Computed example of a mutant assay.
Amino acid sequence: MTTPNALTIGGARGVVELKQFFRERDSVVFTFTFPAVLLMMLGSVFDDAGAAGVSGGQVLTASFAAAGIVSTSFVNLGSALAVERDDGTLKRLRSLPMPPVSFFLGKIVLVVVASFAELVLLLAIGVLMFDVALPSDPAAWLTMAWLFALGITSCSLLGIAASSLSRSARSAGAVTTLPYTVLLFISGVYVPLQTVPDWMADVGAVFPVRWLAQGFRAALLPERMAAYEPAGHWELGKAAVILALWCIGGLVLCLTTFRWRSRLTR
């Protein structure tokens, strides 16, 4: 009889995570509707305030593609792990003969599926409501693919690390939602980067949200829109480097900070 390896166990754990996630209807609705509703509202308000023949709704669609990925990885994963630590779920899972890597692989499966579904939903809203034209160039789809991969990896690792900052399940939402909301403002998602004070933009440039949003704008908007970015071009190479560095940094933070038990557990 063949003993299941860590990858096989991780896949099975991913199925369990998906079933548990979709059974919690309130969580599912909030996860998918929060970025979508914001996009519909802001896109409708600023749809006429476009530049270079591109509407505000189209620009917001590209930026919110990044916001959706960060929401389903950093915010939801960080909050969920904090809750599972507080109610003892992580402690019980750690006592099982399951490799820790399999547990995290299961979480990754959940994040990938949820993030992809969120991205499809946001692009559908952009196409139907704001006349967003999906790319016809394979290079643009390739750009979105590596942005998606680096985005969910870096933000998931940061979410895992951030989950250890919560003292209890009650504070889990604030620990992840507050920095997420702030970063959306200073990273060019809610408002153009040109309207953000320089020091705020400099802070935002340190984190993944800025580069994910700018990368998706590069993939989904006409080339002429690059002139409205701070550097006057898309900076895709820089985006890839910064996101990759956050993948490495996030892994280091996870290895040094992640806890299976609550701080309140004696």
Rank of each mutant, 00 (worst) to 15 (best):
Gln58Val: 02
Gln58Leu: 04
Leu60Thr: 02
Thr61Asp: 07
Phe64Lys: 01
Ala65Asn: 06
Ala66Arg: 11
Ser71Met: 15
Ser73Cys: 07
Ala80Arg: 12
Leu81Pro: 02
Ala82Arg: 05
Val83Leu: 13
Val83Met: 06
Glu84Met: 05
Glu84Trp: 05
Asp87His: 08
Thr89Ala: 14
Thr89Pro: 02
Leu93Gln: 08
Pro97Glu: 15
Pro99Cys: 04
Pro99Tyr: 08
Pro100Glu: 15
Pro100Met: 12
Val101Cys: 00
Ser102Cys: 04
Ser102Leu: 02
Ser102Lys: 01
Gly106Lys: 03
Lys107Thr: 12
Lys107Ala: 11
Ala114Arg: 14
Ala117Trp: 11
Val120Gln: 01
Leu121Glu: 04
Leu122Cys: 13
Asp131Ala: 13
Ala139Asp: 08
Ala139Thr: 07
Ala140Tyr: 09
Gly151Arg: 09
Thr153Trp: 11
Ser156Tyr: 09
Gly159Tyr: 10
Gly159Lys: 09
Ile160Phe: 12
Ala162Pro: 00
Ser163Tyr: 12
Leu165Ala: 14
Arg170Met: 07
Arg170Cys: 00
Gly173His: 05
Thr176Cys: 08
Tyr180Gln: 00
Val182Glu: 00
Val182His: 02
Leu183Trp: 13
Pro192Ser: 03
Leu193His: 00
Gln194Cys: 01
Thr195Ser: 15
Pro197Met: 01
Asp198Trp: 12
Trp199Ser: 06
Met200Val: 01
Ala201Phe: 00
Asp202Ala: 13
Asp202Thr: 08
Val203Gly: 02
Gly204Asn: 06
